[in-house]
């Protein structure tokens, strides 16, 4: 058992932020926590790491009580960049974390290389961009090869190449046996990382595996839009037409095949197809439609 949260509640003043949250993670995996702002994602991580006291419930991490500080030899928490000390260098931060984690000092350069921050290792944090700070936070979080890595919005401020690099590192860590719990608003990235998503709604978790959800978004360029619309209506496919005159619809692969065959049989030429995997986004919209429209 890696994480076991049972009936966790947390109240801020008069508002319940977490209401009977419960879930288990029994084997190494990447789990995304998705939910609107204020849904309790950060609160959940803060409770799991004992940064916040809980009102009721139990939390066990790696078979230990969550209050046991020795847990942090195996658990890392990538928080927002305000935890960094502006006057100290990246090296100072890594050196400190490395020594507390009882890791050899060679790990500093090693992890800096892995994250891609060797060039600014000796610069003070106050000269860092948002992305550079995220790199440092990631380096600090993985220097101990954690068994569990909690990441709160790690993709904030990352340029595309850094985001790709972070995804690569996370997938490598997962391959090495690290369980990663990641909260993010970037649903595209989530889709690329995992099928296991905990949607947070009303202070509770709806555990979802999108493995069989097969949610994809199709963008079709057709030679005759009017005819294509008629034919799709015949099939009762729910679709929209975007500003580029592309036919856009969500469906599973079987019905996509049906759509293509049907259009082809009716002389509608599909000139180009763009497929986007949007499992998390689709499910998110379904779950939070009311919240979003509000």
């Amino acid at each position: 058992m890696i994480v076991q949260v049972d009936n966790l509640t947390k109240k801020y003043k008069k508002e319940w932020v977490l209401q009977g949250v419960q879930f288990e993670i029994n084997h190494p995996q990447i789990v995304a926590i998705v939910g609107p702002n204020g849904s309790g994602k950060t609160t959940l991580f803060n409770c799991m790491t004992n940064l916040l006291s809980i009102n009721s419930g139990t939390i066990k991490v790696l078979e230990k009580d969550y209050k046991d500080t020795s847990l942090f030899y195996d658990v890392s928490y990538l928080q927002d960049n305000r935890i960094l000390y502006e006057n100290l260098t990246a090296y100072d931060h890594l050196q400190f974390v490395c020594s507390v984690m009882k890791q050899p000092s060679t790990k500093i350069v090693e992890v800096a290389k892995r994250v891609g921050m060797e060039s600014y290792l000796k610069k003070p944090v106050q000269k860092f961009s948002l992305g550079m700070k995220q790199h440092l936070l990631l380096a600090m979080a993985i220097i101990n090869n954690p068994k569990l890595l909690l990441m709160d919005e790690p993709l904030n401020g990352l340029d595309p190449s850094s985001a790709i690099n972070m995804r690569k590192i996370l997938l490598e860590l997962y391959e090495e046996g690290t369980t990663i719990m990641i909260s993010s608003h970037n649903l595209d990235e989530i889709d690329r990382l995992t099928n296991t998503i905990f949607f947070m709604k009303d202070g509770q978790i709806l555990e979802e595996s999108l493995k069989n959800y097969n949610m994809k978004q199709y963008f079709l360029n057709v030679n005759n839009l009017a005819q294509a619309k008629d034919k799709l209506n015949e099939l009762s496919v729910s679709y929209t037409v975007n500003k580029d005159d592309q036919v856009v619809f969500y469906d599973n692969e079987t019905s996509f095949q049906d759509v293509l065959i049907h259009l082809n049989q009716n002389d509608v030429l599909v000139e180009d197809i763009d497929i986007k995997r949007i499992g998390a986004e689709k499910r998110y919209l379904e779950l939070f439609e009311r919240t979003v429209s509000e």
């Binding site: 940064l51 847990l71 942090f72 928490y77 928080q79 960094l84 000390y85």
Partner: peptide, 10 residues
Amino acid sequence: RSINLLFTLP
């Protein structure tokens, strides 16, 4: 909240 760094270390 930089204290949180110290609180999430062993």
